[in-house]
């Protein structure tokens, strides 16, 4: 289902009134064909990798992830989209496997190479987190172009010391102190298909990217320069989907009216597709080929899981034109 874009403006207007007339600037991420990206299901299952950041106790990290999800979920009652937390049950990798994953990078800020000899891809040290969205690229097919197939969040625990700002900051160890919830709530916005509310030169936004009112998003530097004088620019800077953050910032923990209006407009409850399929077991690279990493650990389920993995491999092969 493609949410009706023609309704977006109306819904946004309703949201604007409902939120006390706040200025809005939300922006959707778009494909090269200029169609906004979107999830077609009613829900997104999110599962962290089994190895979490060592900066905080594992149970606390899980609580923060759940809290981050709830920050959105508790505010988007007018939307059909649900973010469903799945506790970690083993190793997971951020990759194109149709399984939205939250992955902490602790040893190296890199996506590991594969079992067939590809080298690892390392990320920029200045990125606290990276969200990757895979989508259907069919510019001439309005119905399918932009359909999100997978999205992963990778967190840079190599250069950032994640902590919970509700507690005393930990002793610094040279890494940047970063509130985990603040980071996650922002990245979850990307995962749902939101773009930053400002743009910068060469940031990959297609030229056709506009906010929900049809305006080109302002330059981030313009917002930063003028936010003290212009209330509208300040409101843009206050959104959870603004591109930068203050040190130890926590204000992005709570989606603003603008952020909430975006999700409600893109995924309105009235257009709930009423489908919520949990991703199937995925193929996982390890030791030179596809290996299963099932959700459950029941030995009796292995043949079914193997069949599922084969089907998934075949499906991915169809999408990507590669062998699994």
């Amino acid at each position: 289902m493609r949410p009706l874009q023609s309704f977006s403006g109306l819904l946004a207007l309703v949201g604007l009134i409902a939120h006390g007339g706040a200025a809005q600037a939300w922006v959707r991420s778009r494909t090269n064909g200029c169609h906004p990206v979107y999830w077609s299901q009613s829900c997104i299952y999110l599962q962290p990798d089994g190895e979490l950041t060592k900066d905080l106790p594992a149970d606390q990290v899980q609580r923060i992830i759940q809290r981050s999800i709830a920050q959105w979920q508790d505010r988007i009652g007018g939307s059909f989209l649900r973010l469903i937390y799945v506790p970690p049950d083993g190793p997971r990798e951020a990759r194109f496997d149709r399984q939205p994953t939250i992955k902490f990078r602790t040893g190296r800020w890199c996506r590991p190479g594969d079992c067939q000899g590809d080298r690892e891809s390392c990320y920029d040290a200045s990125a606290a987190a990276i969200t990757t969205v895979f989508f259907v690229n069919k510019p001439d097919n309005e119905q399918e172009d932009g359909l999100i197939l997978d999205a992963d969040i990778e967190l840079n625990s190599v250069h950032n010391q994640f902590y919970d700002a509700d507690q005393l900051p930990p002793r610094g160890d040279g890494r940047t102190l970063t509130d985990l919830e603040n980071t996650l709530v922002h990245e979850l916005g990307h995962l749902m298909g939101l773009e930053h509310t400002c743009r910068s030169a060469g940031d990959g936004m297609p030229d056709c990217t506009v906010d929900h009112l049809g305006q080109r998003p302002p330059l981030c530097s313009t917002v930063l320069a003028g936010m003290d004088r212009d209330p509208r620019l300040r409101e843009i800077a206050e959104t959870t989907m603004f591109a930068t953050a203050q040190p130890r910032e926590t204000k992005k923990r709570t989606p603003e009216a603008d952020d909430v209006a975006a999700i409600v407009a893109i995924y309105p409850a009235a257009r709930d597709p009423r489908s919520c399929e949990r991703p199937r077991p995925r193929d996982q690279c390890g030791g030179g080929g596809c290996a299963l990493a099932p959700h459950g650990r029941t030995a009796a389920a292995a043949p079914l899981l193997l069949l599922g993995a084969i089907l998934l491999c075949m499906r991915q092969r169809r999408w990507s034109g590669r062998t699994c």
């Binding site: 194109f96 990320y123 990276i130 969205v133 895979f134 690229n137 940031d203 999408w319």
Partner: peptide, 20 residues
Amino acid sequence: RRLGGTVGEIGMRVFGEASF
């Protein structure tokens, strides 16, 4: 090299990455 791009019918977007 930049992260992301399109290959066939699949696109990948990494927020914050450079573009050319």
